[in-house]
């Protein structure tokens, strides 16, 4: 089951540049929240703060608080503990090319020391089914490498890999920007179903996509959260002039 994500006064730096400035918002459990905004507005950085991937970049720094359910992300928890509760899907599909499809999905479980063959088989099947990939790959699970799939299939494989460790939150950083329209619509459909079990945060450049998949939308500009509200409200009646300018295509 998903849990709420509570962000309080979050700041993130790259060296001396502040990429994310004093952000406070709450993303509700079992809903999808879209983060939109022009390139370089800090939306990816914001999402990468949630699972502490931001700090893997040299000279990166974070301040503020994030709570995921009862887990305090930046206080008293290790980065690996945090990341085991949060699945992440990246912009470019990044399956492990030297591993079979099966091993790709099982990778996270094996990291956690999971060895039970029967249960692994079950979890791999369940994850691939949830990622709507099972029927396409079930005959080649161990024979084919993860990299032999098409781009859209690779991205769904990455989603299955993230789901296999049963996270509470799924972060998606522009998951469709490298995909064709058909693969994109498959992944959007998937997001719709996954919402029932996970809290989803999706960064997107595509405003139609935000309005299709997310109940809530946050608009970022130059590292600031300009507006955060129900998606309908953001797209039909934004309260900030800058949001309106962006969604009507006047800039960005």
């Amino acid at each position: 089951m998903g849990v709420d994500i509570q962000v309080e006064h979050l700041n993130a730096w790259f060296g001396k540049t502040r990429a994310v400035q004093d952000i406070t918002l709450k993303m509700s459990a079992n809903h999808a929240t879209a983060i939109i905004g022009p390139s370089g507005c800090g939306k990816s950085t914001f999402v990468r703060c949630i699972n502490r991937m931001h700090e893997t970049v040299p000279e990166a720094r974070v301040s503020g608080q994030i709570r995921i359910g009862d887990l305090n992300v930046y206080n008293g928890t290790s980065a690996t503990q945090v990341r085991r509760r949060i699945g992440m899907v990246f912009q470019k599909p990044n399956p492990f090319p030297t591993m079979s499809i099966y091993d790709n999905v099982a990778a996270g479980l094996k990291l956690n020391g999971f060895r039970d063959r029967r249960q692994l088989d079950e979890i791999v099947e369940r994850s691939l089914t949830m990622a709507a990939l099972w029927h396409e790959v079930k005959d080649a699970l161990r024979k084919q490498s993860g990299a032999s799939l098409s781009g859209g299939q690779q991205q769904r494989l990455c989603i299955a890999r993230a789901l296999a460790v049963e996270p509470q939150v799924l972060l998606m950083d522009e998951p469709c920007s490298a995909l064709d329209p058909i693969s994109t619509s498959k992944i959007e459909e998937l997001i719709f179903q996954l919402k029932q079990r996970y809290t989803i945060v999706i960064v997107t450049h595509n405003m139609q996509q935000a309005s299709r998949v997310a109940e809530y939308t946050g608009f970022f500009l130059l590292g600031n959260l300009i507006e955060f509200d129900k998606t309908e409200k953001i797209f039909t009646n934004p309260s900030d002039k800058r949001t309106e300018d962006y969604i009507t295509g006047r800039f960005g």
Partner: peptide, 28 residues
């Protein structure tokens, strides 16, 4: 590629696990 390292880290890997799975695995 850096994305391979990030993929392993995002699964909750420690640094050594990231090197073993993400780097040595790909470079073998």
């Amino acid at each position: 590629p850096q994305q391979q390292r990030e993929a392993v880290l995002a699964l909750g890997a420690t640094r050594w696990e990231m090197i073993r799975m993400g780097v040595l695995g790909n470079a073998r």
